[in-house]
């Protein structure tokens, strides 16, 4: 009870402070703008907008930096937050799960206004994210969801990608296609939402089609070499394999290499998805991947900031909002691969 009272008081004091600050800064600038013909409403809108972000802090905790997705997100968040007058903080746990929980715990102590997290598994940060919201931090989850919902999830709709991929595989490999109907799935880390949702969705589609046979569903742990080894084994068992579906493109490049080594390029279809970096378009043109659902990582970075803008202007307390912004996806094949991918920042 005391905590709630304190928080209400604190919020009141903050609001009063903002009002005073706003009021003191309003006349001079508003007067000047109005004199130049700007409407009072526009001036008000700009003042409210600026006040929502200036001096606030946004923290970003990816699983690791140094991969195309996180580099791109960081680049966009940092640039757009800078324009809003926000302070940007990055904590790179370098793939170390222990370091990641420590980084998030430490951030809860530092109280940034918004925390953007990238969940390696549905459970790792589940408790900490609850704690962060209780501490008054808005949490935005990017691309990999936690079991704990927070103010916003921004990222691909992996269930839908799994479903659409599986449906495409059914038309390419199922009854009437003249193909074997044999499908192999290369999972990611089985505890990550990206892998779980795609595999669940795909298996549900395949289960409804007795003409499709899932001959293998093995975890590749996001590792191209593991995907290559698994696919090489599956191809010796089933040289008539119709399609392989990997839940992440960079990993699935390994499956593409295995298909190429087996001399089956074009005969075994390779399906995958991801953020669409240039290496993927190059590989699609080289025949290593046939169909790729791209959720553009640059647009996702922008979507993160859109979510942040909405959340901070809404005035909602952490824990009040439960929004989802699914990324737009497009399919890339050899026909439209030119210019469909993005270069990494700084390249």
């Amino acid at each position: 009870m005391i905590g709630t009272t304190m928080r209400t008081l604190l919020a009141g004091a903050l609001a009063a402070g903002t009002l005073v600050a706003g009021a003191s800064s309003l006349p001079a600038s508003a007067g000047a703008e109005e004199a130049l013909g700007a409407s009072r409403a526009a001036v008000e809108a700009r003042r409210r907008f600026n006040a929502a972000f200036e001096g606030k802090t946004i923290a970003f905790v990816p699983i690791t930096m140094g991969v195309p997705l996180t580099i791109t997100w960081k680049d966009t968040i940092e640039r757009e937050a800078g324009k809003l007058g926000m302070k940007f903080v990055l904590r790179d746990p370098n793939l170390d799960m222990g370091a990641m929980t420590q980084a998030v715990s430490a951030l809860i102590g530092e109280r940034p206004d918004v925390m953007v997290v990238h969940n390696p598994s549905v459970q790792l940060l589940a408790k900490l994210l609850k704690k962060a919201e209780k501490a008054g931090i808005h949490v935005v989850q990017i691309n990999m969801a936690s079991n704990t919902p927070t103010s916003a999830y921004v990222g691909a709709d992996f269930y839908r990608i799994g479903k659409e991929t599986a449906e495409d595989i059914v038309t390419q490999c199922g009854a009437g296609s003249g193909r074997s109907g044999k499908v192999a799935i290369v999972e990611g880390d089985p505890t990550s939402s990206v892998s779980m949702e795609q595999v669940t969705a795909a298996k549900a589609v395949f289960a409804a089609h007795p003409d499709i046979q899932v001959v293998s569903s093995q975890p590749g742990y996001w590792d191209a070499n593991k995907a290559r080894e698994i696919t090489a084994s599956v191809l010796t068992q089933h040289p008539d394999l119709c399609a392989t579906y990997g839940v992440w493109g960079i990993m699935q490049l390994g499956a593409g290499q295995a298909i190429k080594e087996a001399g089956l390029t074009g005969k075994v279809l390779n399906y995958s998805n991801g953020g669409g970096p240039q290496i993927i378009c190059d590989s699609i043109k080289a025949g290593l991947i046939d169909k790729y659902w791209s959720f553009d990582a640059k647009l996702q970075g922008h979507d993160i900031m859109t979510a942040v803008k909405m959340i901070l202007q809404s005035g909602a307390a952490p824990g009040d909002l439960r929004t989802v912004l699914y990324s737009d996806t497009r399919m890339i094949t050899a026909e439209n691969a030119d210019g469909a991918c993005w270069q990494m920042p700084g390249q």
Partner: peptide
């Protein structure tokens, strides 16, 4: 084999 080196292998 995979036309790339993935440093994440270090954590495997």
């Amino acid at each position: 084999s995979s036309a790339s080196v993935d440093l994440r292998i270090i954590n495997s």
